[in-house]
Each structure stands twice: as C-alpha cells, then as structure tokens.
Nucleic acid binder design. Structure first.
Lengths: 218, 218
DNA sequence: TGCCTAACTTGACACTGTTCAGATTGCGGG
DNA sequence: CCCGCAATCTGAACAGTGTCAAGTTAGGCA
C-alpha cells in the first residue's frame, strides 16, 4: 500500500528492469522523487523525511545519497519540478482568457489554487534552507515561473521595463502573500471544501480591489 | 561562551536567585524564551533545537517540558511575543505619520523591516505546524497584530466593513508576500546592507503602485 | 568468459524530541 | 525551628533522523 508503483502489469518493454529487484533498482531517481512528492502531499513539508522516501522506494536510507548527494539535493529536484508545474498552471490559466487583466486575474487564481491544492510541495519550493538554494537549474525554474507573470504584467501595464518590474513584484507579492496567509489559516479554516471556496472568493475580491477593471495606471 | 548570562555582578536584590544554581533555576521560562529567540536570530527557524535552548539556559533537555509541555509550547510562547513586537512596530510606524495613506505606507515598510531584521522569529511566527496553532493566546496575539492594519485601512478606504476587510486582506497579503519572497531572495541578495536598502526601495515602489496618492478607490 | 565499476547495503555515529522514574530543593504549616 | 510535600529539575533511555565509510552485488563491456 505504501509503494506507489503497483506492478499492475509488468511493462513488456525489454530494457525496463523489474521495479522490485534487490540491488540495482534501475529507476531510483524517479522513484525517490515520486515518493518525496507523495510524502509532501500526505504530510506537508515538515513531514518529509529522507529515510521515509527511501523506505517507500524500497531502498536503504543511504541509497539516495548516490543520486542526489543529500536530502537537499533530492528536495531541490522536487522543487524544480514544482516550479515547472506551477509555470504550466500559470500559462494554462492565462491562455484560457482574453485581455491582459483577465489573464492576470486567472493567473492569480491559479497561483493560489496551486498553493492550496499542493501545500507541501508549495511550501518546500519556497523553503530555501532545505534546498540547494544556489542550484542553477532551481534558479532557472523559479525565474521561468516568475516570467509567466511578468509577460502578462508587461502586456497590462505597458510603460517602461522598470514600471513593469515593479508591477510584477506587486502582483507576485500579492498572490504569494495571500497563498501563504491562507495556508496558515489566517483567512479561515481550509479543512472543508466550503472554506476553500470562500477563500477563493476573498481572493477574487482582493484582485478586483488591487487591479480594478478601469485601472487608471493601466 | 555559549551561556548568554555572564554573572558580571550578582544582583544584590535579595529575591532574585543566582542564575546558575543547580536545581531550581528560578527564571527558567524566561531563560528558555530568551535562548530560543537567540537561536532563531543566529540560525533561523530551521536551526532551532529544543536541546540547544535547554543547553543555553544551563538545564537538562527534559527541563523545558515541565514549563511548556513540548517544543511547540515553547515556540508558541516565542511566537506570541513576536506578534506583540510586530504589533508594537506597526503601531509605532503609524503613529509617526499623518494621513491614512502615509500611515499605511509606514506600516508596510515596518512590516517588511520587521521580517527582514528578525527572519527566524518571523518565519517561526507563521510556521503553524511548529506551534500550537489553536492556542487561544497565540490567535489573540496574531489577530491583535492584524487589527493594527485594519484600523488604518478602515480609515483609508472608508466604505462598508466588507470592503474594509477586502482591503485589509489585500494590504496584508502584499506586504507579507513581499517579505516572504524577499527572505527567499527572490528579489535579490539580502546579505549586504546595500541589498537590503535596494529591496526596501523596491517595496516603496510597490506600495506606491498599489496604493497611489490620488487613489480613486479611496 | 571475466572483470570493472556503478549501484546499493550494512553498520555506525552524532544528533534530535520525548518520556519516566527518581533526586533535589525550598516553601508553608505545624 | 523544622519537617513534609509539591514543584522543579536530572539522568537514562528510546525511537527516529541525516550522513558517512566500507563492504557487497550485478550489469555490461572487453
């Protein structure tokens, strides 16, 4: 029950080894990442444990070090994928709308929704001390996600690049702060789906307040 | 060298016991809280350890449990004091200015300054999983700090209580998100005083952008 | 076929938070 | 004055953590 990869039907492709061999797991990197994401989903960022990830992947506690160096290395990989998923969600949300303001609102909703639906992963993405903070791929993934914002912002505010940068910082701060405060239950309980929806409508009001329709700063 | 309280000169006041007696420390609660705050200041929220706090207070690792139950209890006390300090900083900042908009800007700067000057304490205040999240005194302290915002916001936006609540959520989200992102170095390095000042001017731009002088929503 | 090397295990170490029985202390009541 | 008792703190233990060095296995290439 704990192993995520039930051998429903052994893949017939010849080069994929059986996932449960003794030594030589074969796909340990992927298995460890998947296990880590499962732990984050189940127990949040504070509940992650390298040994538990190894346990779920069916290997000894020392095995991950050969692939990721240490726990920070593994979590960095998880965070990179998280940023990629976030960037995808932001891009998706914007692509479904027309007009810069509508795109930005949709991105804000998508950002908070991502945070509330995957709290552990989200918190870990922004837990610099638990990651290899200066990893170039991590920084790149983070900046790529940020650029999804900046692209829409530039479309919305026009103006000089400096103005656009300010507006992007403002937008990111708003949705990030809202997500963080919501996750700490500062806007009410999150345990029920009703509470979740209430918080999302509060977010809608906030976005309408800070980025109104006929914005003179446009 | 690790003990913060060097017995420079034994206080002559009769009722204060010597701080280094064997059993019966006398002021253990305060000593543990002070030690915890020192650890947070030196090593951040991730660096806190109950045993280290006990060590600095000159006491066995089991001693704190008699006063705070467990590590969460001690950290909850630290967080309460943090919220009180934050509320004081917000009140101070507002009291130095005239006009609702100026007060709000000053509060925003004070909020971020608090976060950047005391990162460990700030992060711990919002680390629900490491605190007794439903402690009534903690909730009260948190709401008291929030009210410092709401008071100014109500003055600024007027309108219905619902509008004021929306605006307060917007303001808190903005400064909280900015502080969190700044602490994760998403706006540049924080290691130098120059970087710190640059980030604070960015915050100024953000505040001017989101709450401009001649705000039509006022 | 045989061997080299990457992949993984084993066992250990220094930590962590928490529990529990017992030692110590000082305060209040006689 | 002093003595019992409750509050306070210790010491040792336990289960669990991340990481390292050294040993073992097996996949694939010569």
């Amino acid at each position: 029950m704990t192993k995520p990869n039930a051998p429903a039907r052994a893949k017939p492709s010849p080069r994929v080894p059986k996932p449960e061999a003794g030594y030589h797991h074969g796909e340990l990197q992927e298995a460890l990442i998947a296990a880590s994401e499962a732990i984050l989903a189940e127990h949040g960022a504070e509940g992650f444990t390298l040994r538990e990830a190894a346990r779920r992947a069916g290997v000894s506690p020392a095995a991950p070090s050969h692939h990721f160096g240490n726990a920070q290395g593994l979590l960095t990989e998880v965070a990179i994928r998280g940023y990629n998923a976030l960037a995808g969600a932001l891009r998706d949300a914007a692509s479904r709308k027309q007009g810069a303001r509508e795109k930005l609102h949709a991105q804000g909703l998508a950002y908070v929704e991502f945070a509330l639906r995957h709290p552990g992963r989200f918190q870990m993405m922004f837990a610099n001390k638990r990651l290899v903070a200066d990893d170039s791929r991590l920084r790149q993934a983070s900046r790529a996600a940020g650029r999804e914002f900046e692209a829409i912002i530039a479309e919305l505010v026009g103006g000089t690049p400096k103005e656009a940068k300010t507006a992007a910082a403002a937008a990111w701060s708003t949705v990030h702060g809202f997500a963080k405060l919501a996750l700490e239950e500062k806007f009410g309980s999150l345990s029920s789906e009703a509470g979740y929806r209430e918080i999302m409508t509060t977010l809608n009001h906030v976005l309408n307040y800070l980025w109104p329709a006929g914005d003179a700063r446009r």
